[in-house]
Design a protein around this nucleic acid. Structure first.
Lengths: 222, 222
DNA sequence: CTCGGACGGTGACAAATGTCACTGCTCTAC
DNA sequence: GTAGAGCAGTGACATTTGTCACCGTCCGAG
């Protein structure tokens, strides 16, 4: 991988035959200031990419996208206020642009949801840095890019067998909440919640609702 | 993988305009390839910093540190094989260098443990990107830097009130394990584990062992 | 030496949790 | 129009939990 920085720059130089072509205008959104800054530094090294906006959460990302109308939006999945998928949905219905989602935990279900919102690119943070610029160029050119690893997992992984209410109950089981509290939150009888949870546990082959919630989360279902 | 270093050195050449002054030789360790690459790009922009090695986990970081003897090691806390603290300990007893720990979740207890291993710097990932270079320069010059926010929290937060065995039991409670399983793992009677857990829950004012484990983790005690 | 604290354990008890069976209601698909 | 699925609920039941009281041992500080 010797080419980490160098190769990327070099390749960009080569591909820079867009003689006088205008560069790709990019928005970068990530809640961690350090990472955001580092990504900006990395991508600004590319001669054909220009970071025109940054955002530290999903809502700001939407505002910035509307204001600056970038060619491509690079959105972290895990953000406060509005996560990457939510932000992507709003951005795509407001301005003509393309979206690349970056994520730490690449879960198959999340990929499915992302693609459903017409996202153009999906890459995990384990992607080599030099790859990212390629992906952005591909996406800017109208192509799509999905990490092959995740795509394969998503194709083999079976679709979610849980009903909506089971998912509701599981969602609340990720935090430390009693059945009572979940029932109140969902405006249901405690017994009903227990039934949903029990059924979900059976479907997911889990010994406790916490384990079931964990498994569902790993699959990206909640 | 040593090719990584090569690339980094190459890229360093770009910003090499440090008129004569010897630059700071840096090691960067982070398990997420993308972040690692971005940090390298960011820091290589600084004329007086030169990234001489990179690592994707704690063990590789130790090897690389011994091989390249950098002035400063930038270690992510959350890494496989050996986490940042563990890597820092081994590096500091093997070579004369300084260590800066970077972390996503800045928990007071972790800071305490980090400082106990003679780490020189401690910054959360919410730090502005521009700050990082300052910190590295400070540390290279022999000064120490601790994020003021975390320092304040660590000073006000009281020390861990839990006993060793309570912590053992809590550690296993973070995953979805039954009391039985924890007891087996710890070679204890189930009742004993329940007692430890119960006592920990009282001390932490938690309603379930999961909540207690969560609270203990947030404090950096486990 | 003795007191306190950590450690390991037991037994009893109440509350929370998970399982099962069975009742309705409302849709949708065939 | 009726079978099936999702939804909401009840009641009974076994297990798992968390709580409490109490029993020892060992070790270090005073």
């Amino acid at each position: 991988m010797s080419g980490v920085g160098g190769a990327a720059v070099g390749a960009a130089g080569v591909g820079d035959g867009n003689g006088g072509g205008r560069s790709i205008r990019l928005l970068v959104a990530d809640d961690e200031h350090l990472i955001r800054g580092a990504l900006v530094a990395l991508l600004n090294l590319e001669p054909d990419i220009e970071v025109v906006a940054t955002a530290e959460n999903g809502l700001v990302a939407v505002e910035q996208a509307i204001e600056t109308r970038p060619d491509v939006c690079l959105l972290d999945l895990e953000m406060p206020e509005a996560d990457g998928i939510e932000a992507a949905t709003r951005i795509l219905q407001a301005v003509p642009t393309r979206v690349v989602i970056v994520t730490r935990h690449a879960r198959p279900g999340v990929l499915r949801r992302a693609l459903a919102t017409k996202v153009s690119g999906f890459v995990p943070k384990s992607t080599p840095a030099e790859e990212l610029a390629h992906v952005i160029r591909d996406v800017a050119a109208g192509r799509r890019y999905v990490d092959p690893e995740i795509a394969a997992t998503a194709l083999t992984a079976e679709r979610c067998p849980l009903t909506d209410r089971e998912l509701d109950a599981l969602r609340h089981s990720r935090s430390t909440m009693s059945v009572q509290q979940i029932a109140e939150r969902l405006h249901l009888a405690p017994g009903t919640v227990r039934n949903y949870l029990s059924s979900a546990m059976t479907k997911l082959d889990a010994a406790s609702r916490h384990e079931a919630a964990e498994k569902a989360w790993e699959q990206g279902w909640i």
